[in-house]
């Protein structure tokens, strides 16, 4: 149980730039605690810098690339916060969060903030309320906020509703062109990075990506070849990211984003009230209700009591 007084006190200390208060607030939000209070507090009009998401299959080098981007951003004397998501075991609820290891060259530098987040299984590759966490970070003063998703790959499109800019990492030799067509994430990528650009085949993969993404009449998606090993393309990628126009959140995409947020709120409520849900289900099943009726009962329970 969280105490509203505690959160108010934390918010006060956060406003004074106290990093431990920021750290604790992020924990509250990532557990789905005190959300309304914190959301209200942050609403008074401060700026929001774009949330950049990095996504791609596991092993494609998301953390390694981020390590390089951190170096680059620090060399420009700007600050950066990273939210690194890793999957949580569906069986034990445990998680091994190891992304920091590949970003550790700046350990101990106050201009870099890294939080490892376990994303509950069954949710897509992102953690609930990430938008609020990102807002906490930008209003604290971090110049850039980057989200690293779990290496999920195909069809993982949830990032789109949360991030302002989606960067998809692919690597040489990822399969034939049919594989590309299948990958749902290609559709939501704002920038495509051919990572491990020093490997053989990288140029061909880059050419294929360009062919596929930049069909006549489509919105042009930039493709950049980057090697974290040699550093080639890092500066180019970064300038592309910071200068790229953000998604227009006032158009149709905003509806999808809002729907996704509604979905998230419902999922969070379920996750934190297992007993309540269980008792409804028990009740329905003992009175012989069908699945459809049970679902309706649960939904009406949600909308009656909770926002």
């Amino acid at each position: 149980m969280s105490d509203k007084g505690d959160i108010r006190e934390l918010l006060r200390r956060y406003r004074h730039g106290e990093r431990p208060a920021l750290n604790r607030l992020v924990s509250f939000v990532s557990r789905g605690d005190g959300i309304d209070l914190i959301r209200d507090e942050l609403q008074d009009g401060s700026h929001e810098s774009p949330l950049i998401a990095i996504t791609g299959n596991s092993g494609v080098g998301k953390s390694t690339l981020l390590g390089r981007l951190i170096e680059h951003v620090r060399s420009l004397d700007e600050t950066i916060a990273i939210l690194a998501c890793d999957p949580e075991s569906a069986l034990t609820g445990g998680a091994l969060l190891g992304d920091r290891v590949r970003m550790s060259s700046h350990a101990g530098d106050e201009g870099v903030w890294i939080r490892s987040l376990a994303s509950a299984s069954g949710q897509q590759a992102v953690v609930d309320h990430l938008d609020l966490i990102a807002q906490l970070l930008t209003q604290f003063g971090f110049d850039h906020v980057i989200l690293e998703t779990v290496g999920a790959g195909q069809g993982d499109v949830a990032v789109e509703s949360i991030a302002d800019l989606v960067v998809l990492l692919i690597q040489p030799e990822i399969g034939d062109e049919l594989q590309w067509e299948k990958a749902g994430v290609l559709e939501v990528a704002d920038v495509v990075v051919v990572h491990k650009g020093d490997l053989p085949g990288a140029e061909r993969t880059e050419a294929q990506a360009r062919d596929l993404l930049n069909l006549p009449g489509c919105e042009q998606t930039p493709v950049v070849r980057v090697s974290s090993k040699t550093g080639e393309g890092i500066a180019e990628l970064w300038s592309l990211l910071v200068n790229r126009p953000q998604r227009d959140l006032t158009t149709g995409r905003n509806t999808r984003r809002l729907l996704r947020l509604v979905q998230q709120r419902i999922a969070t409520w379920f996750a934190f009230h297992p007993d309540e849900v269980e008792s409804i289900v028990q009740g329905c099943s003992s009175s012989g209700m069908t699945n459809e009726q049970t679902i309706t009962r649960i939904l009406s329970h949600l909308t009656n009591d909770h926002s």
């Binding site: 949580e88 075991s89 034990t92 091994l96």
Partner: peptide, 15 residues
């Protein structure tokens, strides 16, 4: 991790 903890592994040679 298997016991249900969220383990953040920070690696070798840390200050």
């Amino acid at each position: 991790r298997d016991a249900g903890c969220h383990v953040i592994y920070a690696g070798l040679w840390q200050q």
